[in-house]
Design a protein around this nucleic acid. Structure first.
Length: 519
RNA sequence: GGCGACGUGGCCAAGCGGCUAAGGCAUCGGAUUGCAAAUCCGACAUCCCGGGUUCGAAUCCCGGCGUCGCCUCCA
């Protein structure tokens, strides 16, 4: 098995990936607290871990990926009051929004999405486990974790306990130390509540992750992921809870993805002439993206940009680095994606087969190709190696994607140089070579969750009269063809220019002219 | 104040001590095309600054400057 290396936040180094119970791998990714619509930043973790699971699976591992939904929390209660609807309704709505966004981005590798409210028994048992071992104490219906009892507390986020502020408010008086945090919060009269040994109440923020990861993945599991902003206090507290309850390490590898930032890098013309009415959310709020700053509306963003473009945009950069997000950057990602779509068209024209219908290799070994002296295949085999080397190295999707472009060039060059066209014999070696290399591209892009299905036709379609548009276009192309044959280029160019003005591009190719919408 | 990340061509972005510093966007040449588009070929960086370690550093260390994040809710 090839060596995969993973950056572990706990050790601050890349470590060889050696799962506890290979080939089984357990991954727990912190999902959202569902009190508001998701924003683009919420997708970074799901996309990278979806990709990581695809990659590990391809390498022979059997991965269980868990993404939790935290559906009970102070913010949900606040939202519930504000809107005058039950907390559960808000949770249901926002969970649906989150899942719809995941689907649009091609995130389909998640095995479990446990909800905190479905695991109250596990949560209560977990707190009892801590209480019985002296790590937790109850005061007037609240239960707190005593941070001072955990000697390894702070190791993950690299802080000492005397730096901790801990939550203030009315709970402060009941805590033994300011850095202690709530495991269970007693409920006020109008708050959602569950019965517990300490009275009616609800879980604190971190305990649901400890309880649910334990329930599904066990006391110690392989990978725990989440955004960098969760490292403290969330993950530090989770780790303390789980480690103390089980007297065993919680996680072998802690992986944290970088955060996304909104910004105007180009800023030609400065900020003054921006029109808030037409700007995206990202442009309006420079700096950190968060719900409290108005982030959100991801569904709308997806509608404008397509999920694939967003996924590609996220994968272009290494998962641990900060991504500056704005419409220009997204547009650039879209532009570079076009080269693939054009190739897919070209491929289909030449082979009569849709790239999307090619089947990806089952696993890493099965995908290997035998060049048998073919220069083009040798090149492709080398590029495939390069791709895997990049992915083996802490899932370097950015470097891996560069290989995709190399592969594209290899194939286009091969088509150009071999003179392949749609009349080439089906059993010609040049065709076979193209199909082999395309097979590699299919394998490598599937691993990134890219190009799994054709992009929907350009927005603003023809609705009812698409048949008519096609017929009109056929007519215009026919007329222009005649003009060109008569060397009447003034007419042929006029047709093309006028069509361009109304958003239709004509593309003259070897064996005919095609058209497409440009706006 | 404490902790941490980052600074690579016009822009984005790989690189983790040693091949000619990936790839994308943009730009400029060339092939191809009636002209375009697409495609292919080629051009375009010594890596924020200053020291140091080393036979050798974009890559390690120290010191600056700059940007950003966490320390309170946050993917």
């Amino acid at each position: 098995m090839p060596e995969i290396r993973v950056y572990n936040t706990l050790s601050k180094t890349k470590e060889p990936f050696a799962p506890l119970r290979a080939p089984a791998v357990g991954i727990y990714l912190c999902g959202p607290t569902v009190y508001a619509e998701a924003h683009i930043g919420h997708m970074v973790g799901p996309v990278i871990f979806d990709t990581i699971k695809r990659y590990l699976t391809h390498n022979g591992y059997q991965v269980t990926l868990v993404v939790n939904i935290t559906d009970v929390d102070d913010k949900l209660i606040a939202q519930s009051r504000k809107r005058g609807v039950p907390m559960s309704q808000i949770a249901t709505e926002m969970t649906a929004d989150y899942m719809a966004n995941l689907k649009e981005l091609g995130v389909n590798q998640i095995d479990y999405m446990p909800r905190a409210t479905d695991h109250m028994d596990d949560i209560i048992q977990f707190i009892q486990c801590l209480e019985s071992q002296g790590y937790a104490y109850a005061v007037d219906g609240d239960v707190f974790f005593e941070v001072g009892k955990d000697k390894s507390y702070g190791e993950l986020s690299n802080r000492s306990t005397d730096q901790q502020q801990g939550e203030g408010g009315d709970a402060a008086a009941r805590k033994r130390s300011p850095s202690d945090f709530a495991l269970w919060k007693s409920a006020k009269a109008d708050e959602p509540a569950w019965d517990s040994p300490w009275g009616r109440g609800r879980p604190g923020w971190h305990i649901e992750c400890s309880a649910m990861s334990h329930r599904i993945l066990g006391e110690t599991f392989d990978i725990h992921g989440g955004g960098l902003d969760l490292m403290f206090p969330h993950h530090e507290n989770e780790r303390a809870q789980s480690t103390c309850c089980h007297n065993a390490p919680m996680v072998k590898y802690w992986m944290h993805n970088g955060l996304m930032r909104a910004g105007n890098k180009g800023k030609v013309g400065g900020k003054n002439d921006r029109d808030p009415a037409t700007e995206s959310v990202a442009e309006q709020t420079e700096g950190k993206i968060s719900r409290s700053k108005g982030g959100g509306g991801l569904a709308e963003l997806i509608r404008r940009q397509t999920g694939e473009r967003l996924r590609f945009f996220l994968l272009r950069t290494h998962y641990r680095s900060t991504i500056v997000f704005n419409d220009e950057a997204l547009a650039e990602a879209g532009t570079s994606l076009e080269a693939f779509y054009r190739f897919f068209d070209r491929f289909e024209e030449l082979t009569g087969t849709s790239f999307y219908d090619l089947s990806a290799a089952e696993n890493r070994e099965a995908g290997a190709i035998d060049p048998a002296g073919d220069k083009v295949l040798e090149e492709a085999a080398g590029l495939r190696e390069k791709y895997f080397a990049a992915m083996d190295d802490d899932f370097n999707t950015g470097a891996a994607i560069s290989v995709l472009f190399d592969l594209l060039r290899t194939m286009n060059r091969h088509i150009d140089q071999s003179g392949l066209d749609k009349n080439t014999a089906a059993d010609s070696p040049a065709r076979a070579t193209l199909l082999s290399v395309a097979g590699v591209l299919r394998e490598l892009t599937s691993l990134l969750g890219l190009f799994v299905k054709p992009v929907p036709a350009a927005a603003g379609g023809d609705d009812g009269d698409s048949g008519l548009s096609d017929q009109l276009m056929d007519l215009l192309i026919e007329l222009r063809k005649t003009a060109r044959q008569n060397k009447d280029f003034a007419t042929s160019d006029a047709i093309r220019d006028r069509l361009a003005e109304i958003g239709v591009a004509l593309l003259d190719k070897k064996d005919g002219t095609t058209w497409e919408r440009t706006s």
